[in-house]
Design a protein around this nucleic acid. Structure first.
Lengths: 232, 232
DNA sequence: GCAAAAGTGTTCCGTTTACACCCATGG
DNA sequence: CCATGGGTGTAAACGGAACACTTTTGC
């Protein structure tokens, strides 16, 4: 979180929410960070944090700021957990509940917050120094993403409406941080019956145009419910 | 949590920790519940909750009460997450951070807490009515356990030093809530190189005595770190 | 001998993995 | 005609699922 001076009356003391917002850009997994204006975190990069209003749930608090920062209304949201070491926040005892969101890069219109004077995407493996325990939080979240992407079809939340199989593969490669075999990846994904062929092709590419796909939302919902397995 | 009258000076306002303690008894997965003496939860069953001291981390707070209640010092501890609906606690805004622990049944010596007048083990599928959102929390935790037991060797935390393969299988069956094939289970577990043959047999059983095994702690640590796969 | 659980063997079949290979397009 | 990525084929290895079968022990 940014600073204590700004704690509004209607917010809970001692509790903050911090958010990790992820998107894919140029085949790389990016995370959105902000530079705070004032307070303990002034001029330093950190996760997008804020206080929790007395009359909103933790989930709602996270959604509120993610929407405000990115302009995106629909995104995958998950709770990473609560972080509560005694000295994690300087001078005061603050528990933070961390959420991570997956957004489509092209849908995001980054808005400056009141307490920040910079917002930027960073490659998850190349971030600046972060305030408090935010680096630990990022690392834990990257681990959680690896874990999750293999058992729930969350990777798709990072793609535009229509996408190619290579784009999808790049997401898995970025999150799992390893190269995957193209033929095997294609077959595996296709067999899930999750993709619908748009019967369209890429245009203006300097190689054979790839087929565009979109999701079968019904199958997608079922896989989310019952889980699936993606062991690479 | 129990009641607000008891909030000690040194505790954080607005935040509680609730714990689910699991153990295996007679081939059944049990969870430890308490009946509170006073406050909003008086005479009702609930998870073992408490306030967080200003000078202890969330993890430490959970460990403290789990040890105090069960007398056990070594147990598997994981955070389930934070629960923060606005109306989850009557009359006041309380965020609770939930932990679950796996203990060995025979090591547990249940101690009554100051605020409780009953503590008892319940089959996880047969619990009484619970206070607040504790039933939701239990359900979410059972789902998490299913998820986890297939990817990390946590099931072993529920067993005594020396155990038979059937005891281990019963844990998986209880958590996954399904019958497993004995020959296949045995082979699968054996191939992990996680078990050391104690070269001892069961005694006083009315059938062929089973071999006793114990864990190879080194392999166990590695599997915890790198994850494993147990898809049944 | 019978019940109960220990423990082994084997077959079938789908999935994973690795890698060779051809296709289409723009420069 | 070549670089780039799209896309298909295939064979070997592995692992899961199902189930028949033998062994040991106490009563």
């Amino acid at each position: 979180m940014d600073n204590e001076e700004q704690l509004p009356e209607k917010s809970m003391p001692n509790i903050s929410v911090d958010n990790l917002i992820f998107a894919m850009q140029d085949g790389q997994l990016k995370v959105l960070l902000v530079k705070y204006k004032q307070g303990l975190a002034a001029n330093k990069w950190g996760l997008i944090g804020h206080w929790v209003h007395q009359d909103e749930s933790l989930d709602d608090a996270a959604s509120r700021v993610i929407s405000a920062t990115t302009g995106v209304e629909n995104f995958h949201l998950d709770q990473l957990g609560a972080f509560g070491k005694v000295d994690r926040y300087p001078g005061r005892r603050i528990i933070t509940v961390v959420y991570y969101a997956l957004v489509r890069f092209d849908e995001a219109n980054i808005h400056q917050g009141e307490n920040t004077h910079e917002v930027a995407w960073f490659n998850v493996h190349d971030v600046p120094e972060l305030i408090f325990d935010h680096k630990d939080i990022l690392n834990k979240c990257l681990g959680q993403l690896k874990y999750k992407v293999r058992h729930e079809p969350i990777g798709f939340s990072l793609l535009p409406e229509k996408f190619t199989l290579l784009q999808l593969q790049e997401i898995y490669e970025a999150i799992l941080d390893k190269k995957l075999d193209k033929p095997n990846f294609r077959r595996k994904i296709q067999k899930m019956n999750l993709l619908i062929n748009c019967k369209e092709k890429q245009t203006a590419v300097a190689h054979r145009a790839a087929t565009l796909y979109r999701f079968d939302v019904h199958v997608y919902e079922k896989l989310k419910e019952f889980g699936f397995n993606f062991e690479y």
